[in-house]
């Protein structure tokens, strides 16, 4: 699971509705792996507008991944160093094992063999 995916997942337990707490999920006991992929500028530019950049930098800092500025540069396309670092963090950093805990309700979602399990029990939906 790439950090991009972590940036898209939020707690969806029914009673857990505080947007300040149900996202981003808190990563715990995780194993990381870097997997090299081809950089695609158009795709990356598209993603810049879609990711929650604050959540991304917060998570990156927690994982000890340095080199992302606090804010997206005004013209990211003209900043190849930023584009490359964003690509490495967002698309090449993979979580192979671990947990994601909700800061609101405490629900824990597991990541096994790189696949996050977002299923909930009937009573939690």
């Amino acid at each position: 699971m790439r950090l991009l995916t972590h940036n898209m997942l939020q707690c969806h337990v029914k009673k857990c509705t505080d947007p300040a707490l149900n996202f981003p999920l808190q990563l715990q006991d995780i194993e990381l792996e870097q997997v090299e992929t081809e950089e695609n500028e158009d795709l990356l530019l598209n993603l810049i507008n879609k990711v929650d950049y604050n959540a991304l930098t917060t998570t990156a800092a927690q994982l000890g991944l340095v080199g992302l500025p606090n804010a997206i540069p005004k013209d990211p396309q003209a900043d190849p160093a930023f584009m490359t670092r964003l690509h490495e963090v967002l698309l090449e950093t993979n979580i192979t094992q671990g947990k994601m805990a909700c800061r609101g309700c405490g629900h824990v979602y597991t990541i096994k063999d790189g696949i996050p399990n977002m299923l909930l029990a009937e009573h939690e939906i």
Binding site: T5, D113, M118
Partner: peptide, 22 residues
Amino acid sequence: AQGNLETFELEMELVRVNVVAG
């Protein structure tokens, strides 16, 4: 699916989720 991705040397994000929950 994961085994297939390895066979084909493709990168794909897999998420276990009920698409049509609730």
